[in-house]
Design a protein around this nucleic acid. Structure first.
Length: 455
RNA sequence: GGCGCGGUGGCAGAGUGGUCAUGCAGCUGACUGCAACUCAGUUAACGCCGGUUCGAUUCCGACCCGCGCCUCCA
């Protein structure tokens, strides 16, 4: 089986082939930790987590690194505003980030490098770039000399001249060329800083990824992922730094970028208030609903988040879990060849998760009408292929009974009410029975053929 | 101003030069004391205008609309 991925660098879908036959190296840009993360930040995590799961089925070793940017002017501003150190701020929000991502069923990466742990490596890379004639010092800043690199702009597929022609931003006058970007900048005494050959200062944003990739994954990696917004300038500049520091060695074999999540702010705020942070969404929906919503669109398409879409995702998962619950699992777990799975096949085609989800529905439908061994085989295939996307792995009973933000009536109280209602029905005391039903409904209890559920 | 992306049924969202996406919602039927749940079935789309073609939602061009990026500040 071959994985195909869309390579942003070449603009085409390509058969994936790692440098080493059995090992894949993947790096995904993580967050700058100065606040709770936005749902948009969750998309690359969910997308590349899915890719990570798929890669693990194909290669014996997959090394996945996702960084934490813990030095940045935004963090400095937040620290100053709150009277805290940047370490306190970044550590608090990094922990919150890990919690949020875990709620969305994301596997932890193998390596989580922190920028502040790699200042030495960054300084070394700057020195290399200076020595090789790709960087220069100006007014205590070290700048990357864009003109020293041929092919700059190739990842973003734009001409530098075009971009600069239309730029609306003032250019710092110490730059030799307007396109040059900062590798190192000076810190005042009050600002966080590290000693360097060029004085006390701090690194430019793009540098950390180059330095950490070099240290943990090598000069050339297989996959580099992140949001499309990072393509330029962040990834373009990473590419420039790393390539120039390594005398033109290839930096990344496959660049992958996910599109944005759009939020209809007005609509959202009407129904659910401030809705953009993952944490806030988790107050209204289980993490798996958010994950399912993210995966319901192809990662390279823009995705619309709305209360409608999330409610629909919730309903869809409820239905799928309901089907799973209706089919009891026997002791025998049939051996399933993933290679026969249409879900797997869809994922191998550049992570076509909408098709994969369609095939999950097809499996569920087939499973319902099947019986015996066939049914068990279908159930196993359904569960194993859904696991590739990190969904449908919970106990269906728990999923259907317990939902985020519910739970003021205990299970036993509900049971008692249901029994009382059934008795009233048998005695044809329909008024009493309907009263109980209405009361349960108001508390979010839905009666079903074989019992009840919260919803 | 420069460069680029997108407009699919009520909503979300795939895909294809000529038979189905799929899900949620809706509708019809079964079940029910009536409902709900469940089950079976079903309606409905391809921004606008030209062109290519036997045939275009799918290819080409113009137009309209929406969106993104333009360099420490995703």
């Amino acid at each position: 089986m071959t994985l195909f991925v869309y390579n942003s660098y070449t603009g085409t879908k390509e058969a994936f082939e790692p440098i080493k036959p059995d090992t894949v190296t993947m790096y995904v840009c993580g967050p700058t930790v100065y606040n709770r993360v936005h749902i948009g930040n969750a998309r690359p995590v969910v997308v590349f987590d899915t890719l990570y799961r798929v890669l693990k089925t194909l290669y014996s070793s997959v090394i996945y690194a996702r960084n934490i940017t813990d030095i940045d002017d935004k963090i400095m501003a937040a620290a100053k505003a709150g009277g805290e150190t940047i370490a306190a701020i970044s550590s608090r929000y990094a922990t919150a980030y890990f919690d949020d991502m875990a709620e969305l069923n994301n596997l932890p990466p193998d390596i989580i490098p922190y920028a502040t742990d790699h200042v030495g490596e960054m300084v070394a890379m700057i020195q290399t770039l200076i020595d090789k004639g790709h960087a220069y010092e100006a007014e205590s800043h070290i700048l990357f000399d864009v003109k020293s690199m041929s092919g700059y702009g190739k990842l973003a597929k734009r001409s530098l001249e075009d971009m600069l022609a239309g730029a609306r931003v003032d250019v710092a006058d110490y730059k030799k060329y307007a396109g040059d970007f900062v590798l190192w900048k000076p810190s005042t005494d009050e600002e966080p800083g590290w000693d360097s050959p060029w004085g006390r200062g701090r690194p430019g944003w793009h540098l950390e990824c180059s330095a950490m990739i070099e240290k943990h994954l090598g000069n050339t990696i297989d996959i580099h992922g992140g949001g499309i917004d990072l393509q330029f300038p962040h990834h373009e500049n990473e590419l420039a730094q790393s390539t120039c520091a390594h005398d033109g060695e290839p930096f990344v074999r496959y660049w992958m970028h996910n599109a944005y999540i759009n939020i209809d702010g007005e609509k959202m705020s009407k129904s659910l208030g401030n809705f953009r942070m993952v944490k806030d969404l988790l107050d209204h929906y289980p993490g798996e609903v958010l994950r399912f919503s993210i995966l319901s669109a192809h990662y390279r398409s823009e995705l619309n988040f709305s209360a409608d879409a999330l409610d629909s995702a919730q309903k869809t998962l409820d239905n799928l879990y309901g089907v799973l619950r209706s089919v009891e699992t026997t002791d025998v777990d049939p051996v399933i060849e993933l290679s026969d799975s249409k879900v797997y096949k869809a994922l191998l085609d550049d992570l076509n998760t909408p098709i994969a989800i369609r095939e999950i529905h097809a499996l569920a439908k087939a499973m319902k009408s099947a019986s015996g061994e066939t049914q068990q085989r279908l159930k196993s295939e359904l569960l194993k292929s859904a696991a590739l996307m990190g969904i449908l792995q919970q106990d269906p009973d728990e999923w259907l009974m317990v939902k985020a933000g519910e739970g003021d009536l205990s299970d036993i109280e509900v049971e008692n009410q249901v029994v009382e209602m059934q008795q009233a029905r048998q005695q044809k005391d329909y008024k009493h029975a309907d009263d109980i039903r209405d009361r349960l409904q108001q508390r979010g209890i839905i009666l079903t053929r074989d019992g009840w559920k919260r919803g």
